[in-house]
Amino acid sequence: MDPFLVLLHSVSSSLSSSELTELKFLCLGRVGKRKLERVQSGLDLFSMLLEQNDLEPGHTELLRELLASLRRHDLLRRVDDFEAGA
């Protein structure tokens, strides 16, 4: 399986429902409101961002910004580990 997708799945499974709600709010300018209403998990949101090329294995800035906004430094370390091994 693609290591970047494994990372996104790992991050998604670590998010609380309130954190997902916050991420959806933060992505309002990037993803349409109707699409965001269908998001049920972090993976749903990340999939939309992947489709729009806002997220890519070599383009993790948005993911970092979102996780920093949540103050999830543990998840930021996972992104660091991914990039160190990528």
Rank of each mutant, 00 (worst) to 15 (best):
G85E: 13
L76Q: 05
D74Q: 01
F46R: 01
L63K: 00
V31Q: 02
E65V: 10
E83K: 07
H73M: 08
E65G: 11
S18H: 12
C27H: 01
R30W: 07
E65H: 12
T60Y: 07
T21A: 13
L45E: 02
P3K: 14
H73R: 09
L26G: 05
R38A: 12
Q52F: 06
L36N: 01
L23V: 05
S47L: 15
S17P: 14
D81V: 08
L49R: 00
L8E: 02
F82E: 02
A84F: 11
V6G: 09
L8N: 00
C27R: 02
L76E: 05
D54V: 12
L45Y: 01
L45V: 08
L70N: 03
S10H: 10
G29S: 12
L28R: 14
L45W: 01
F25A: 14
E37R: 10
L76P: 01
P57L: 09
L67N: 01
G32Y: 05
T60V: 11
E65W: 12
L8W: 00
D2C: 04
M1I: 10
R72F: 00
V39P: 00
F82W: 11
H73Q: 12
P3D: 14
E19G: 02
V11K: 01
R72S: 02
S17Q: 15
L75H: 00
L63T: 02
L20S: 02
N53T: 09
L63E: 00
D44C: 07
E37V: 08
D74T: 01
K24A: 03
L50T: 15
H59C: 12
N53L: 06
E56M: 12
L23W: 00
L45R: 00
L28K: 15
E61Q: 12
L23S: 02
T21W: 06
L49C: 03
F46K: 03
C27A: 08
L5P: 02
G42D: 03
L7G: 02
N53A: 10
S13W: 04
G58W: 06
E22W: 06
E51V: 07
P3R: 11
S41E: 07
C27V: 11
L28D: 15
V11A: 02
G29H: 08
L43K: 07
L55W: 06
S10C: 10
R71M: 10
G42Y: 03
L63M: 06
R64K: 14
L5I: 13
A86D: 10
V31F: 08
L23M: 13
M1E: 12
E19N: 04
L26F: 07
L36T: 05
R64W: 04
L8D: 00
F4L: 05
A68T: 14
K33P: 11
L49W: 00
G29P: 10
V79D: 00
F25P: 05
G58Q: 14
D2A: 05
S47V: 15
Q40W: 07
L75W: 00
E37M: 10
L62C: 09
L75E: 02
L76H: 03
A86Y: 11
S16A: 05
A84P: 05
S41K: 08
S14K: 11
F25T: 15
L50C: 13
L55N: 06
D44P: 01
M48T: 09
Q40V: 11
Q52I: 08
G29I: 05
L50H: 15
Q40H: 14
L28M: 14
G85I: 09
H9S: 15
E56D: 13
L66C: 07
S12F: 11
L66G: 04
V31D: 03
L49A: 02
S13V: 11
V31C: 14
G32R: 07
L28P: 02
A84V: 13
E83N: 09
L67I: 06
C27E: 02
K35M: 05
R30K: 15
E65Q: 11
V39R: 01
S17K: 14
V6R: 15
L36H: 03
R30C: 07
L23Y: 00
N53M: 06
G29V: 06
L62D: 04
L20N: 01
L45I: 11
V11C: 06
L75I: 05
S69I: 07
D2V: 06
V39W: 02
S41V: 07
S41W: 03
S13D: 14
V6W: 10
N53Q: 12
L5R: 10
T60F: 11
E83Y: 06
L26N: 09
L43A: 13
S14W: 00
S47Y: 12
L49D: 03
E61G: 14
D74L: 01
L20P: 02
L43N: 09
E19C: 03
G42T: 06
F82K: 00
D54W: 09
